[in-house]
Design a protein around this nucleic acid. Structure first.
Lengths: 197, 197
DNA sequence: TGTACATCAGTGAACGCGCGTTCACTGATGTAC
DNA sequence: TGTACATCAGTGAACGCGCGTTCACTGATGTAC
């Protein structure tokens, strides 16, 4: 049955949204096309009206994840002075909430080790996303008056991603929280953001 | 045919070695039992004489990876004063060689996002490995006279792992090298190791 | 010391299952007349 | 305005394939007598 013209686009976005969630939780090779379509309220056969292959879906879903990430960044940083913006973003990134909410979390921490094994299109989408996040952070670091803001931005993103990933790996809740707290403090100190929490 | 009694142990270790390599490169769900056995010079049916399941192999292979990691740490750090030891380890960890040699690389950077999706046994093996690395680093940081060495150790490991993972994701060679260099510099600076390279 | 038997690491065929992909079909909507 | 036809998002059965696991079998070595 033919549907209203906006419906195809809406369906595509629903599929992408479900794919982005499932991939973040179960990994690119841990979810199937059928499962994603089912969650989007469809049968698996219709998948190929929207994407040429599962690989293409993964690449597109990575874009979706980074878009959500930019919205998250804007939410915490936009319209605030750089010191507050950076502090808020770091505090959110290294929070228990972000650690536990894997389905909607930042793909930099949650997918980094999968990426080298993905298709070129997926890797490019991912690298592009990481670059944009890095630039956004670097720009706040620059506004704070630090020298070598670009390099500092890279280093900050590395620590954010590493700390969140490691906090997810630690089964002891107290220790996991300490991992987050240790990196929050270290980042505050080296960015001169002043102590808190 | 029955073999000499030491042979079973030797075979097990060969299988584990191949598994550790393949898992690091292709991920836990990207390698098959048959492929690993073939690389160990055996047929797949013999696998279950050594491991009860693929999951058990993965958990055991994670131990193997961290053992190799400890050997690597010893190689760079053992018998050196803490400043030199830490510098050498950081420089090796954030080197192009380590980035490119995924088959023998540190599992903290290469597997972190797979771990939350693995069996309890595998997650515990991994967490245990990470804890030991963190303690080794923290102990050097303490010897350097820093306060709060435990937290610093956690933060350093987070940045090491994050930076290496992100350097592997960046397709542009120059940028990838910059990611490594940025974190080497940032780590040197915050640990008071003095500039070099 | 020699013989008969038990053991068990490793072989290779077979199994069931899930997955990505294909395909004939459906039927509501848009378009042409 | 009304009718006939084309379109194409979505359905559901089917496909081939690879994977984890099982199993009957092999045969060199260790053990019991």
């Amino acid at each position: 049955m033919r549907y209203a013209p906006e419906q195809k686009q809406a369906t595509r976005e629903r599929v992408l949204g479900e794919a982005a969630k499932q991939i973040r939780v179960h990994g690119p090779s841990g979810v199937g096309v059928a499962e994603i379509m089912k969650r989007a309220g469809l049968t698996h056969g219709g998948f190929y009206a929207h994407f040429p292959s599962k690989d293409a879906l993964i690449a597109a879903a990575i874009d979706t994840m980074f878009e959500a990430g930019r919205a998250r960044f804007a939410e915490h940083a936009l319209g605030r002075p750089p010191r507050e913006a950076l502090t808020a973003y770091i505090d959110w990134y290294l929070s228990a909430k972000h650690r536990d909410d894997r389905a909607t979390a930042c793909p930099i921490a949650g997918l980094s080790s999968d990426v080298p094994r993905l298709s070129k299109a997926a890797r490019d989408a991912y690298a592009n996303g990481v670059t944009r996040v890095t630039k956004a952070i670097a720009s706040l670091v620059r506004e704070l008056g630090h020298r070598d803001a670009e390099a500092q931005g890279r280093s900050v993103v590395a620590e954010l991603a590493g700390a969140l990933a490691l906090s997810r790996v630690e089964p002891d809740a107290a220790r996991s929280t300490e991992i987050l707290a240790a990196s929050r403090r270290a980042l505050r100190a080296r960015l001169g953001l002043g102590a808190r929490s």
